[in-house]
């Protein structure tokens, strides 16, 4: 029996997902004994032509991390879709857009202006911006086109499975890769490596009185490590986020930020968290409620930190 062929690719990402796999350590040896890694640009030198030369559907499973923010991301997504039997959206960026998707609160022009013009230490007197094409005497140079709106992998190509997390937690990654190599898979479209219940289910903190009378930022207080974050006025995305990560952030005394994405019966993670959070505001009249609502800094960034591209609204108005 030939060994299954697996591939890894990174698109618009931070590299953390690659590190998550890399951190499997000696387990990687085990994996490479059981499967052939045929494409992994983060670690080994590959060219596009290597990928293009592969027959269609010759890769058994590709783990694709990163959001789709430029034309290269899209090109590789399409190519890998052709070449792979199974395409897995790996990590929060591919799943929901991740941190890169926060670019959807602004525009390409604004991003370029900040990066290449406005930041204090930028030295760019001619105000040059990257261009997709540049003619020089040696020929025409092209770089990928930068998109205005970040998309998830499944908004670009057909996706078979999702492994959420920023990054997906080590033990989950190990289990998931074994599962794919072994071939014992749930129905298409399933989310692997995560619980079907929210983080609250595995969070060890005590929950008592669900009422919020005041909201505080994480820098304004040192949370009591035993009590639920929400009850201390700290916004924790736990109730609206899939568990399975072992609640490591909570163990480090920080609130959940929602990187494992929405729960199975939920259409829009941010909207649900907004609803749950505001429902338990301890305020009866409009004035008090307005004050509490006003004290949530950056609702989009808070509720859609990792899932803006996947949300119903997807981006701010441009």
């Amino acid at each position: 029996m030939p060994k299954p062929k697996i591939a890894f690719n990174w698109a618009s990402s931070c590299g953390g997902c690659e590190i998550a796999i890399f951190e499997l350590g000696t387990k990687l040896v085990d994996i490479s004994n059981k499967a052939d890694i045929v494409f992994w640009p983060a670690i080994f030198d590959y060219k596009y032509s290597d990928l293009e030369a592969m027959p269609d559907k010759s890769i058994d499973v590709t783990f694709f991390n990163g959001a789709i923010q430029n034309s290269e991301n899209e090109h590789l997504a399409r190519l890998l879709r052709e070449k792979s039997k199974l395409l897995v959206a790996f990590g929060a960026c591919a799943h929901g857009g991740g941190i890169p998707a926060l670019a959807n609160t602004t525009s390409r022009d604004q991003i370029f202006a900040s990066s290449y013009k406005e930041t204090p230490t930028t030295d760019n007197p001619e105000k040059l911006f990257p261009q997709p094409k540049f003619n020089m005497k040696e020929g025409e140079l092209t770089i990928p086109e930068f998109y205005n709106t970040v998309k998830t992998l499944d908004q670009t190509v057909d996706v078979d499975y999702y492994v959420p997390g920023c990054p997906p937690v080590g033990e989950q990654v190990s289990k998931v890769i074994d599962q794919f190599i072994g071939g014992d898979l749930p129905p298409k479209g399933s989310v692997l490596g995560a619980s079907d219940k929210s983080l609250c289910h595995e969070c060890k903190r005590t929950k008592t009185d669900r009422k919020i009378s005041k909201l505080v930022r994480t820098y304004q207080t040192i949370p009591d490590p035993q009590k639920c974050m929400l009850e201390q006025g700290i916004i924790c995305m736990g109730p609206a986020t899939r568990g399975g990560c072992g609640s490591i952030c909570l163990d480090a005394n920080m609130p959940c930020r929602g990187c494992y994405g929405p729960l199975p019966n939920v259409v829009d993670q941010g909207a649900k968290m907004l609803s749950a959070l505001s429902s338990i505001f301890d305020a009866e009249n409009e004035e008090e409620i307005q004050k509490l609502a006003d004290s949530v800094p950056d609702p989009i960034g808070t509720f859609y930190r990792f899932s803006l591209a996947r949300s119903l609204m997807r981006r701010t108005k441009q």
Binding site: S198, N265, I280
Partner: peptide, 15 residues
């Protein structure tokens, strides 16, 4: 309540 989906966050209880 869908028993399998309930995560025990208790947000509903006081509402």
């Amino acid at each position: 309540i869908n028993e399998e989906a309930c995560s025990g966050c208790r947000i509903c209880v006081g509402l």
